[in-house]
């Protein structure tokens, strides 16, 4: 075959087809069949009629929503203060805030767990609070970074113009800075919300035995129940799709930029 730059893409194309597209198809197949390979809607109806699985869905949404709001409330002021500060070394300071994301998350959660045990005595008293704290501890840098990146790139003359035209400081902030920083907020939310719905290890390590969506997949996996597990994965995929469509703006930009490399 004649050498062409296009053919270079073939290996990766094959790889994606085999290990990204095919698993999704298999997931669909397993979700809608039973152990005998016969088509069934049983897994679907089971999920939406079983109070346990529905409870899990709502509990994950509650954890994810709370975590996202807490992260946002902490990250926005920090990102804003850093991005608008006149310090020369602010690029170094922002590095200090995001450095923890390179340390293995299980080790970081171990550290948090020891501290929480010291403070609370017994972790079992506040399972929800601890889980949200754990998720926040884990994901906060992923919220700070994209917000900082958008605010730091904002044209400073816009807020000045607003001030010159008579807006007070609060008005300029609310009407100019906040709307312009929304893309960063959105990509921050998308990097916190979904992991917070599925990262069940944080709950496990902090002794919260309530299930979230991820834990359901884990339990089906442990029981070799591929059909039930596939349905949960499919429901999660649905949520992810809806969420991505809602937040789809500069997604890949934020994701790669999110690693600050």
């Amino acid at each position: 075959m004649k050498f062409s730059r296009k053919t270079l893409g073939i290996p990766y194309g094959v790889f994606l087809t085999l290990f990204v597209v095919a698993p999704m198809i298999v997931l669909f197949y397993y979700a809608f069949t039973n152990g005998q390979g016969v088509f069934t809607l049983r897994n679907l109806t089971d999920f939406f009629t079983d109070p346990n699985t529905l409870g899990t869905l709502f509990y994950s949404l509650a954890i994810a929503l709370t975590t996202t709001v807490v992260c946002l409330l902490i990250a926005y002021p920090v990102a804003y203060i850093l991005a608008t500060s006149k310090l020369k070394a602010k690029s170094v300071i922002i590095m200090i805030f995001v450095t923890p994301m390179w340390i293995n998350f299980s080790l970081r959660i171990t550290a948090l767990k020891e501290i929480l045990t010291l403070i609370e005595g017994n972790l079992a008293y506040y399972p929800f609070l601890n889980s949200v704290l754990g998720m926040t501890y884990d994901f906060l840098p992923f919220m700070i970074l994209p917000i900082y990146n958008t605010i730091v790139k904002l044209d400073h003359s816009l807020t000045e113009a607003a001030r010159d035209l008579g807006a007070n400081e609060r008005g300029a902030f609310l009407k100019v800075t906040v709307p312009l920083s929304l893309p960063g907020v959105v990509s921050g939310i998308s990097m916190v919300f979904l992991p917070a719905m599925t990262n069940y290890v944080v709950l496990d390590m902090l002794y919260n035995s309530t299930y979230i969506m991820g834990s359901l997949i884990g339990s089906y996996f442990a029981a070799y129940n591929w059909h039930g597990g596939s349905m949960i994965a499919l429901v999660l995929l649905g949520i992810i799709c809806v969420f991505t469509l809602l937040t789809d703006s500069g997604e890949d930009d934020a994701r790669t930029g999110g690693a600050l490399l």
């Binding site: 999704m24 997931l27 996996f221």
Partner: peptide, 8 residues
């Protein structure tokens, strides 16, 4: 989600 990728 990594759980879904891994499981599938």
């Amino acid at each position: 989600a990594d759980v879904v990728t891994g499981f599938s």
